[in-house]
């Protein structure tokens, strides 16, 4: 497998220091205030559930819903893993906001030339061989960066080593077809605000089942409608012809008594 990158977030190791958000804001030149929810100025945010800190950001799905819905291809999945956004292409239809199963993209509503904002998975750093700013800043190793397949092995190893400590699930391994962000947790994910009903099928498949019928509708439908017209048209032609013939016969009878 190619060098597809990912991050593993071990919720048992996170101490809530917020260094990830700080580093992220610095990297992306965002105002340095601490934020609890994802916003235009917070591509990652820590929220607290009981004693656990949950770090949220774009999941950089393997088969991204946002990429599939974007009518102009402003969103794209890079080979290394990040889901990238090109504001110059974006027409502002906001289908990505509507469709993202994780509610990640945020919109610059107050601008007259609005764009979306979200975690970039530090694509430019990855291209240089660096790890994302947040992973580099994490003092406890709660956020760990690496190759996707290796991190999956590592996550499974941690869960198997201490089965009492973790729920037996790697969130993001195959949810919505797999993401680039894996979470392992000591409590069931539903209790932490994760949507665990998303299923394993990538969301874009739901649309493809309908869109894949488009060529059939066009070809079969076109031939069918043409055929129907041919038949009905022929029928009325024949009718007109027969009527004309009858009329002609009538004239002939009148002419030759």
């Amino acid at each position: 497998m190619s060098q597809k990158k990912a991050m593993l977030i071990d919720l048992t190791l996170c101490v809530g220091c917020n260094a990830c958000q700080g580093a992220c804001k610095e990297e992306n030149r965002l105002p340095p205030n601490e934020e609890k929810y994802l916003s235009l100025t917070a591509y990652t945010a820590l929220s607290k559930y009981n004693d656990l800190y949950i770090r949220r950001m774009c999941q950089h799905c393997e088969v991204p819903t946002c990429v599939s819905v974007c009518p102009v291809g402003a969103l794209s999945k890079l080979e290394a893993g990040p889901v990238a956004y090109d504001g110059e292409k974006c027409i502002g239809c906001r289908y990505c906001l509507q469709a993202c199963p994780f509610h990640v993209p945020k919109y610059e509503w107050s601008s007259t030339k609005p764009r979306i904002q979200k975690c970039k998975f530090c694509a430019s750093r990855l291209a240089k061989g660096l790890q994302p700013a947040c992973a580099e800043a994490c003092p406890t190793g709660a956020t760990m960066f690496g190759d996707r397949d290796e991190l999956l092995v590592e996550a499974a190893r941690r869960i198997n080593a201490e089965p009492a400590k973790f729920v037996p699930r790697i969130y993001g391994k195959d949810d919505v077809g797999g993401t680039s962000m894996f979470y392992i947790s000591p409590v069931p994910f539903e209790q932490l605000g994760f949507d665990s009903r998303l299923g394993k099928t990538p969301m874009p498949m739901l649309t493809m089942s309908a869109l894949s019928k488009v060529p059939n509708v066009l070809s079969v439908g076109g031939v069918m409608l043409g055929g129907i017209w041919w038949i009905t048209n022929r029928r009325s032609e024949v009718q007109a012809h027969e009527a004309a013939l009858k009329k002609g016969e009538a004239y002939q009878r009148e002419d030759n008594p």
């Binding site: 009518p71 102009v72 292409k89 027409i91 502002g92």
Partner: peptide
């Protein structure tokens, strides 16, 4: 940017 769908296609998108 309303004309973008004319030149930038994404055949996976219903919106397109």
């Amino acid at each position: 940017h309303f004309w973008h769908p004319l030149v930038m296609w994404n055949p996976h998108s219903v919106m397109c």
